[in-house]
């Protein structure tokens, strides 16, 4: 026996992403979230029977980047559209990809009722504490004191209220099977986020009800920071307010070892 050295591929671009270049700003964690969902679709071999629902917001062009079936929903209505698709085609994997303006603001009614009805869909919620596409206005998830173009002196909770913790809110509903929060600011947390995305799809495959993964993300352009400073800002400011954790995990999921 002889030993030779051969090149082994450790990582390559997932097949569930198209060849299109993304329009996101450099360092935007939307790209990481897209990549993780695509990697999980590859690993589970579900690309051919997955249907995504794109939101309105920065990720409005998500249908150009995922190489699976995709539809575009009206602003905030992705969970309603996903409900219809899943009920008509129960053998498909249906997921929505939504930002905080889409899910926590205009689409608050749809998401709460989809979770309350226990619709068997998976929701990926990108929380970057600001409205990205419309140039950095205050979002429902903007932190107290955070400066945005529509709260130039910082979010004053006396007049503008408190940020919404969507994962905790939806976990209280009986229809929810898997609701967790993860972050995308370092390799460890990105690995944890990928496992959570996998478990969200597993929840749907097992028919355990509504699943949502909230992903803390950055918006370096509208936060006015560099991509690296944004990751630091996320870790220092967002995680204390939005703790990473599992808020609802159906008993049947606890046996799954990844």
């Amino acid at each position: 026996m002889d030993t030779t050295l051969s090149a082994q591929i450790v990582y390559q671009r997932p097949q569930s992403l198209t060849e299109a270049t993304m329009h996101y700003c450099p360092g935007c964690t939307h790209g990481i979230a897209h990549r993780l969902i695509a990697e999980v679709m590859d690993e589970m071999g579900i690309r051919e029977r997955s249907i995504g629902v794109a939101p309105v917001g920065c990720s409005v062009f998500a249908y150009n980047y995922f190489d699976c079936d995709f539809v575009e929903a009206a602003h905030g209505r992705a969970p309603a559209m996903a409900t219809g698709i899943k009920r008509l085609l129960p053998d498909r994997i249906v997921f929505t990809y939504q930002g905080d303006g889409d899910l926590a603001s205009i689409g608050m009614g749809e998401i709460v009722h989809a979770a309350g009805r226990g619709e068997n869909i998976s929701v990926f919620f990108i929380n970057n504490a600001i409205y990205g596409m419309t140039s950095g206005q205050m979002a429902p998830t903007t932190l107290p004191g955070q400066k945005t173009t529509s709260s130039p002196r910082g979010r004053d909770v006396e007049t503008m209220g408190y940020p919404l913790r969507m994962a905790e809110l939806l976990a209280n509903l009986d229809g929810a099977g898997y609701v967790v929060r993860r972050s995308l600011h370092d390799p460890k947390n990105i690995r944890m986020a990928k496992k959570a995305i996998r478990l969200a799809f597993e929840t749907q495959l097992r028919g355990l009800g509504f699943s949502m993964v909230e992903l803390l993300s950055t918006c370096s352009t509208n936060w006015g920071l560099s991509p690296l400073e944004s990751l630091k800002w996320l870790e220092e400011h967002m995680i204390p307010y939005y703790p990473i954790g599992d808020f609802k995990v159906a008993d049947a999921l606890k046996e799954i070892k990844l």
């Binding site: 050295l5 990582y11 990105i190």
Partner: peptide
């Protein structure tokens, strides 16, 4: 070392990571 951490961080999936691994070849 081909650990692949750069690819885990990359938002654009722009990186392909390779590693040289010893492989037994029967002569």
């Amino acid at each position: 070392t081909g650990c692949g951490i750069c690819a885990i961080m990359c938002p654009e999936a722009a990186l392909t990571v390779y590693r040289e691994t010893p492989q037994k070849v029967s002569v």
